[in-house]
């Protein structure tokens, strides 16, 4: 039994097997990438892990505890945070509020203690201040100071992606699922992101599952790569091995490319 195990995971929509008997095991503090052509079921795996879909078969185990069947908010509390391919931020809230929402699971202020936030010493204010301090570290870390009080809806695409990573980080997760974090970023931003992802692993002790299309980034950052196509596993191994695998080349470049 490993740290984070996926066993025989399957789900089908109608007749289509979107994820078909997928198993892998991720070690603690690993950067584990999932690659595959569009529609191969990568994001579906993330949705299965975070509880948005329930699998037809199989289990998702974090430190031996099965997460299948739990609601997304329970799974978040178990230590799994994620970002979305198409950015799911709270557009009409500031960057600060978006990150503070990442602290939701650690806060206890209710309606009444919140309504009676009179002055600095009230319980609600003390809790707010403590968590704002934690969020400020994330803002520093991801260099978001300049947009701290701006509404997320008004930010550039790359910045929004970063805010989403920050929000996931605010959950102090054990596992972070990053769904194409570099999409829409320019080369410079991608380089920064690569460094940040490594730092997140080192400084925050987070295990990272990464879906990415940028091959340079994938090859440079991943400890292991899981390649899949049409819901099925092609190969799992270190970057060099996966890169040379004929089926991976075929899946990416088509039959002619392989020949």
């Amino acid at each position: 039994m490993g740290y984070f195990d996926i066993e025989h995971l399957s789900i089908s929509f109608g007749g289509l097997k979107a994820v078909d008997d997928i198993s892998f095991s991720v070690d603690k503090n690993e950067i584990f990438s999932i690659i595959g052509p569009n529609g191969s079921g990568k994001t579906t795996i993330f949705n299965l892990i975070s509880g948005i879909y329930h699998p037809n078969e199989g289990t998702v185990k974090l430190e031996g505890e099965n997460l299948v069947g739990k609601t997304p908010d329970r799974i978040a509390r178990k230590g799994i945070a994620r970002t979305f391919q198409n950015i799911e931020l709270f557009a009409n809230a500031t960057v600060m509020d978006n990150l503070m929402l990442g602290r939701h699971i650690f806060m206890d202020t209710g309606v009444f203690s919140g309504a009676f936030m009179w002055g600095k010493r009230s319980r609600a204010a003390r809790e707010e201040i403590a968590h704002r301090e934690k969020v400020e570290h994330i803002i520093d870390f991801l260099e978001l100071q300049s947009v701290r009080d701006q509404f997320v809806g008004s930010l550039a695409y790359g910045k929004r992606k970063l805010v989403e990573v920050g929000r996931a980080l605010a959950l102090e997760p054990k596992i972070m699922l990053l769904d194409e974090p570099s999409a829409g970023m320019n080369t410079e931003e991608k380089d920064d992101l690569t460094i940040w992802i490594k730092d997140i692993r080192e400084d925050y002790n987070v295990t990272i599952l990464l879906i990415e299309h940028d091959m340079n980034m994938i090859m440079g950052i991943s400890d292991r790569i899981f390649a899949m196509s049409q819901g099925q596993k092609i190969v799992l191994g270190p970057p060099r091995e996966v890169q040379k695998h004929p089926e991976v080349i075929r899946a990416y470049l088509g039959e002619e490319g392989a020949a």
């Binding site: 799974i75 978040a76 979305f84 709270f90 809230a93 503070m100 929402l101 209710g110 959950l171």
Partner: peptide
């Protein structure tokens, strides 16, 4: 005050994206 603290932020989160609200707990 409610809107400035945890509960109010959770309300806004549900309005803007209920799916993201769920995955942050």
């Amino acid at each position: 005050n409610i809107l400035k603290t945890k509960v109010g932020r959770a309300f806004v989160a549900i309005r803007d994206s209920d799916i993201a609200a769920e995955v942050i707990g």
